[in-house]
Design a protein around this nucleic acid. Structure first.
Lengths: 210, 210
DNA sequence: GTCTATAATTCGATAGAC
DNA sequence: GTCTATCGAATTATAGAC
């Protein structure tokens, strides 16, 4: 079916360009004209495939979030059914490792995705809410297992610590390739070192309590 | 001089409303017409007092950043001329304490300021650069004294750790009053507890190295 | 599914009267 | 210093031909 292929290409082309521009300029700072110019498609194609600017944004969020969440939960599943809770370090490794490796492996596209996800967290209502919804289940399950690994800490305490852990990974991936950043786009060994240092940095802060 | 008083009121009124709208919607998401409607001033007044939308943004940044930087450097000055470097905890206390206390003391206005400063960090070029410039000297001096307190760590390592420390304080103040957040707008005792927990959280991660 | 053409708003900025 | 009026450009979205 030639027409189907063409459609998918057009849709994906729009999604890719929209993700990049939303990442760089935010929702309000990106116009559909910017998107269609770079994607080399017609303005009407956006409305035909997605309906509106906001629905286009939701589509971009869905695609990005699902990949991250799926890889995280895949790692987490190994631990959830064990009698013994895993160490805090293993949990953080399951949280940080998959998205970081995926982003690095994707190259330039990964950096765009990282920037996009970070921007979602500071978008005004209702854009931010649309994106956070995609992570709800993942965050709840990570909190559950954190609770088992750190039984002396309250749910509230673990919640703001996980929130800070997210802020840290978001900032880290957004600083990739910046001067003096923890990670520079490069070898997979460098990524593993960065992950272990991030895990160490955060684990120290999370374990501490009172 | 009545006219002077009126002028200052108009300028400050514009600054206050602009800070709130920039904080909520970002630079691109805020129109000058939104500002003048809420500030109840004339559209031409904005251009008369500030010149352009971008110059208005710079004026808002200046006012917000200078207050934070001044209070931080005031604390830091006590340590810079000592022979013995202060402990890591004391440095972080000087970094986190003054802005956090100021924001809490300002009430609703402080929350807006916090949101605004957080948003500056994710604005696209050249907006972000305009705001980071205001913090350059402060960050350099904090790095210098961190270097003395943690002589075993490289400048690069301390740089990304300070960057994460900033990401943490930014996220924390932006989550004030959210469910399960570390701080809820309230008593000054609660603020001091929050500061010490934040310091503890970050100090653990920063001290660790290799 | 893709295109052109255009409707209907909204934007930043300015000229000029007061 | 403040106002009205307005320009020129850009925006989202849609109608209708192909």
């Amino acid at each position: 079916m030639k027409s189907t292929v063409t459609t998918i290409d057009t849709k994906e082309q729009i999604l890719n360009v929209a993700e990049q521009l939303f990442a760089e300029k935010g929702f309000a700072g990106t116009s559909l004209r910017n998107v269609i110019r770079e994607a080399q498609v017609n303005i009407a194609a956006v409305h035909y495939h997605f309906g509106s600017k906001e629905e286009l944004f939701v589509a971009v969020v869905r695609r990005a979030a699902q990949q991250i969440v799926t890889s995280q939960l895949e790692q987490l599943a190994k631990y959830e059914n064990l009698d013994e809770p895993p160490s805090l370090e293993k949990i953080l490794e399951a949280f940080y490792g998959p998205p970081l490796r995926a982003i690095i492996q994707m190259g330039e596209t990964g950096l765009i995705r990282a920037q996009f996800m970070g921007r979602c967290r500071v978008e005004p209502s209702p854009i931010q809410q649309l994106s956070e919804k995609e992570f709800n289940e993942s965050h709840r399950r990570f909190l559950d297992i954190l609770q088992r690994a750190l039984p002396n800490q309250t749910r509230t305490e673990l919640t703001w610590k996980l929130d800070l852990a997210i802020a840290i990974i978001v900032r880290t991936v957004n600083q990739i390739n910046q001067a003096n950043s923890l990670i520079h786009k490069g070898s997979s060994e460098e990524v593993e070192i960065a992950i272990s240092r991030l895990v160490k940095f955060v684990a120290q802060g999370m374990r501490n309590y009172e």
